[in-house]
Simulated assay, not measured.
Amino acid sequence: MKKRVLLPVFAAFMIFAGADSHEVDAASVDQLTTSAYQYIGTPYVYGGTTTRGFDCSGFTRQVFSDLGISLPRTSGSQYGQGQSVAKGNLQAGDLVFFNTSGAGVSHVGIYIGNQKFIHSQTSRGVSVSNINESYWAKRYIGAKRVANFSTIEVAKAEVKNAQIDFSVYTSRGEVAIQLAKALNLDTSDTNSPFADVKPSAKYAGAVTALSQLGVFSGDEHGKFNPASPITRAQLAKVLVVAFDLQQQGDAPTFTDVPTSHWSSEYVATLASTGITVGKGDGTFAVNDYVTLTHLEAFINRAQQQ
């Protein structure tokens, strides 16, 4: 039986019907990456199928389920779905398979473009890897396309997310989680005001609590953009508001933060309290993305104020 899934009207009305596949109205690439990236950092758990921990096929199954697409439970069964795709013709959303056990298909991930795929691996949990890295290249078996995703937003999605290693850099969703923990906020309310934060997302309660405190506000489209990175300037504002920080005396100045810059007061507050000392070259690097390591350091210092 063919299953038809209704998704938001801005998703491209593209239909794919391969061997043993469902007929679906596919979501956009941006929806796919947003769904996948929300689970970055979730630990690997053998047999795991929830946000407490995923194994590889539990993760892929969850991401596709978020988009209304059903997948079998195991990597071997998922390999039996859809249409085979040559490695040179991979598109975002294709399932990529590997032999990590020496006994055939034993690992699966989701290709997200630019030679990257997102998966739940034993050593790092849900994370992004390069399909051409020596380890994965040697164990690559093949790929299957179980649904076509709109190519309208492919370039946008690749620029926005696929170039960013979220095992190094933090996403806005992760910032919300870490801040809520540091502030000991009640995260039981998962009905956020943002259109792109589902109640089922692991950061939903944190985002809701922080938005109620005025720490986060949406963009002009009412979105939180949980799978996007956050810049150092943006984080400066978030930290000042979240911890109600006040400037303490004169602050060091940075060559890339003139007084006319929107973040100047927030950066000055962080600098005056010693939460930041800049990059060591006289700049604050306002547009650099925040790493997970720096996020932890900033929050720890802010808690001591």
Rank of each mutant, 00 (worst) to 15 (best):
D30Q: 13
A147Y: 00
S77E: 13
F64I: 00
S167D: 15
T253H: 12
A242R: 00
E296I: 12
T255I: 13
F224H: 02
R139A: 09
N130I: 04
Y79T: 06
D20K: 15
F166G: 00
L292M: 11
V241F: 03
Y135M: 01
K202H: 07
A182L: 07
K202V: 08
P43M: 09
D66L: 06
D281W: 09
S35K: 04
F224W: 05
K3E: 04
T51N: 11
F13G: 12
F224N: 01
A297L: 15
I141D: 00
N225L: 08
A180F: 06
Q115K: 13
V197S: 06
E133H: 14
F54Q: 01
L185T: 03
G205H: 04
A236Q: 06
G173E: 09
S188R: 08
M14C: 13
T208R: 05
R124F: 11
A227L: 02
H22D: 15
G142E: 06
R73M: 01
N287P: 10
G82P: 02
T170K: 07
I275W: 03
A27D: 01
S21R: 01
L210G: 07
H22F: 14
Q246A: 13
D20T: 10
D66Q: 14
Q31G: 06
G48E: 03
M14L: 15
V126T: 06
Q212D: 10
P252R: 05
N184D: 14
F224G: 00
